[in-house]
C-alpha cells in the first residue's frame, strides 16, 4: 500500500507523521521524500544529519531539453509558436532557449520541420538512497533555481517497488502535490486546529477527493487553536475523511522535534497509534473484495 502524507498548510507536521509512520510499521518500507523543493525527512530519522553530499547512493535526475542545431535552423519559429511556456523565442532568425521555463515536453523537437532540434539531458536535481534498518529512504532534492519538480518526484517514486510506501508530499495543492499523490492507495492529511490549518486542509481534501484517494486526517498539536473541534469535524464530514489520530501539543514532542529525533522515540506509545492509522488506511483503501480502490493508474 502507498500512503501519501499531505496537508495543505505548511508546517503542520507532514514530515513528523511520515517518519513516525515509517518507523512504527516494523516492516520493510519505502519512505519517499517528495517535497523536493525542501526535503527534510533525513533530519528526523534516527541518524539525523545525513550528509546529502556524501550519501550512500546519489543519482542525478535529468530531463530532456532542446538543443538547436544552428546549421539546420531556418528561424521559422515553429518551435516558439508551439511552446506554451515561452521557453523558446525566435528573434532575428535565431532561437533563444530558456531552460528554466522549459517543461521538457519534447514538442519543439517534434514540430521542427528541419529536424534541427535534438534533446539533451539537463540536470534538475539529485536522488539520494539510504537505509535505516527496515526503512529504505529515498530523498529527491531539486537544484536551486530549478522549477520542474514533477519529473524529479516521478523519478523518486520509481524507486519504490510495491512494498509498503510512505510518501512525504510538499505543502499546498500545486502540481508537485498532485504528482506525489497520483496513484496512491490512501492519503493522510495532517492539520492543526487553527483557521489557516483548517482552511488549507479543506483545499487539500478537495484535491484528494478529486483524485479519488480515500484519506484520513491527523490532527497535530491537538489542544491549540479553536476551542473545540467543530470546524474540523465539519471538514471531515464534508469529504468523508475520518479523523484517525490526534498528536498532542506536548513538551516532550516539541523537545524531540527540536533535537531532530522522531516523535516515536520521545513518546513510544505513538507507535501503536501510527500502526492503527496504517491499518485503518489499509481498510479504507482496499475494498471488501480485495480489489484496490481509489485512483490507481
Amino acid at each position: 500500500m502507498t500512503v501519501v502524507v499531505a496537508s495543505g498548510k505548511g508546517g503542520t507536521g507532514k514530515t513528523t507523521v511520515s517518519v513516525g509512520l515509517a518507523l512504527s510499521l516494523e516492516q520493510p518500507v519505502h519512505l519517499l521524500d517528495c517535497d523536493v523543493e525542501a526535503p527534510n525527512t533525513h533530519l528526523l530519522l534516527p541518524n539525523a544529519g545525513l550528509d546529502l553530499a556524501s550519501a550512500q547512493e546519489t543519482n542525478r535526475c535529468t530531463v530532456p531539453v532542446p538543443r538547436v542545431n544552428p546549421d539546420r535552423c531556418t528561424g521559422c519559429g515553429a518551435c516558439s509558436a508551439f511552446c506554451g511556456f515561452g521557453a523558446l523565442a525566435v528573434v532575428r532568425n535565431r532561437v533563444l532557449f530558456f531552460d528554466d521555463l522549459c517543461h521538457a515536453c519534447g514538442g519543439c523537437s517534434l514540430v521542427c520541420p528541419e529536424g534541427a532540434i535534438t534533446e539533451v539531458p539537463h540536470e534538475i536535481g539529485t536522488i539520494v538512497d539510504s537505509h535505516y534498518g527496515p526503512i529504505h529512504h529515498v530523498l529527491g532534492e531539486l537544484h536551486v533555481g530549478q522549477t520542474l519538480a514533477p519529473p524529479l518526484i516521478r523519478a523518486v517514486k520509481e524507486r519504490a517497488d510495491g512494498l509498503a510506501t510512505i510518501i512525504d508530499a510538499a505543502p499546498g495543492t500545486t502540481c508537485p502535490v498532485m504528482e506525489a499523490a497520483r496513484g496512491a492507495d490512501a492519503g493522510l492529511l495532517v492539520t492543526e486546529n487553527t483557521p489557516f490549518g483548517l482552511h488549507d486542509l479543506a483545499l487539500a481534501a478537495e484535491v484528494f477527493a478529486d483524485l479519488g484517494i480515500p484519506s484520513g486526517i491527523v490532527l497535530n498539536r491537538a489542544g491549540i487553536g479553536h476551542e473545540d473541534e467543530e470546524k474540523l469535524r465539519a471538514v471531515s464530514r464534508r469529504f468523508g475523511f475520518p479523523i484517525l489520530m490526534r498528536i498532542p501539543f506536548s513538551d516532550a514532542i516539541a523537545r524531540a522535534y527540536a533535537e531532530g529525533r522522531p516523535i516515536v522515540s520521545a513518546v513510544p506509545g505513538l507507535r501503536t497509534e501510527f500502526r492503527a492509522v496504517y491499518d485503518e488506511l489499509a481498510r479504507m483503501a482496499i475494498s471488501p473484495s480485495g480489489a484496490v480502490s481509489g485512483a490507481r493508474s
Partner: peptide, 15 residues
C-alpha cells in the same frame, strides 16, 4: 494572463 514564460513571449511579439 499566460501561466509562464509571458515575458519572453511578449518580448518576441514586440520584436
Amino acid at each position: 494572463d499566460g501561466a509562464s514564460g509571458v515575458g519572453a513571449k511578449v518580448a518576441q511579439l514586440v520584436a
